[in-house]
């Protein structure tokens, strides 16, 4: 079974990240929602249409899927590739729509180039232009920056941001957690079963206690006497010779109390900062703490 016990809702206009290790079932989920694979059980609605075997063409008319490999006809020009897909979406006079799609990915000048002669980054852009042709309500992007150099990846990410501004719901499958953190309103972490769904900051808060990192010029002679009575400090632990991690509820409001306590104790404060956990920390925590996945 590729995935099981997965349930979530994506709001219109949202950029939703779908994260998980290789073999977690991300691509299968996208293919199932895109009506390419029939589910063995369960139910779903895509773009407001129930996912049934009869509704496949109707759903596919309202969505766009860009697979990891854009799959362009290399012997056809960019515009010929787009003409084919405009025809498949039933557009009778596709010229203006194709022009708009090419303009939105900055490819107007390359419209008559053979796709076989384009770089990988440009092909990804053609794939995005193709996905824009039917003005989809939902766009599924599977690893859109895979194999791209940083500049090309940055361009693709800007284009995805542009989609958000156009009100397109984006379902983004990616391995790049920094990308997901930058782009996504919410993320889901999948490892065959759904591990969690939420905003990146919300997941951080749920998984990691908030803390302040205090660094002093010299080790404190009695740190417990300094941090123990300070308002809002739940616990503390040393991290290095003159560095301490304090578990707190509200770092922003507790930091002044800690500063005052340190100054009263005669300590030379170098820095007091809020400890930051990345989406990567969240991801690793969830994936590593998955006993079922470990047993598989």
């Amino acid at each position: 079974m590729a995935f099981d016990d997965v349930s979530f809702t994506v709001a219109p206009g949202e950029v939703f990240g779908f994260l998980g290790p290789n073999g977690a079932g991300k691509t299968t989920t996208v293919r199932t929602l895109g009506t390419l694979i029939a589910p063995t059980s369960g139910s779903a609605s895509v773009a407001g249409i129930p996912l049934t075997s009869n509704n496949g063409p109707e759903i596919r008319q309202r969505i766009a899927i860009m697979p990891e490999n854009p799959g362009l006809y290399k012997r056809l020009t960019v515009v010929e590739n787009l003409q084919l897909f405009a025809g498949l979406y039933g557009q009778r006079n596709p010229g203006p729509r194709i022009g708009e799609a090419l303009e939105s990915v900055n490819l107007t000048a390359r419209a008559h180039d053979l796709c076989g002669n384009l770089s990988k980054g440009l092909r990804q852009r053609v794939g995005l232009a193709r996905a824009l042709l039917n003005e989809p309500a939902v766009m599924f992007l599977d690893e859109p920056t895979s194999g791209l150099d940083p500049v090309a990846a940055h361009e693709v990410l800007d284009l995805i941001n542009g989609l958000r501004q156009r009100g397109v719901t984006v379902f983004l499958t990616t391995h790049r957690l920094d990308e997901a953190e930058r782009l996504c309103d919410r993320v889901a972490i999948l490892n065959t079963t759904l591990r969690s769904v939420g905003r990146p900051d919300e997941l951080r808060e749920r998984l990691f206690s908030r803390s302040l990192v205090v660094e002093t010029l010299a080790p404190l002679p009695a740190p417990d006497a300094v941090f123990g009575p300070t308002t809002g400090v739940e616990s503390w632990r040393p991290e290095g010779p003159s560095s301490y991690v304090l578990t707190v509820d509200d770092p922003r409001n507790i930091a002044p109390h800690v500063t005052r306590a340190l100054v009263s104790a005669g300590a030379d404060v170098v820095s007091i900062t809020e400890s930051q956990h990345s989406l990567e920390d969240v991801y690793l925590q969830l994936i590593n703490d998955d006993p079922e996945a470990a047993a598989r």
Binding site: S7, P39, S41, L194, R195, L203, L286
Partner: peptide, 19 residues
């Protein structure tokens, strides 16, 4: 077939909640 109830999400205990 068997239908997963909307909002029913398997999570690790600390994460909890619905969507």
């Amino acid at each position: 077939g068997a239908v997963t109830a909307p909002g029913q999400v398997r999570r690790i205990p600390r994460v909890g909640g619905s969507d």
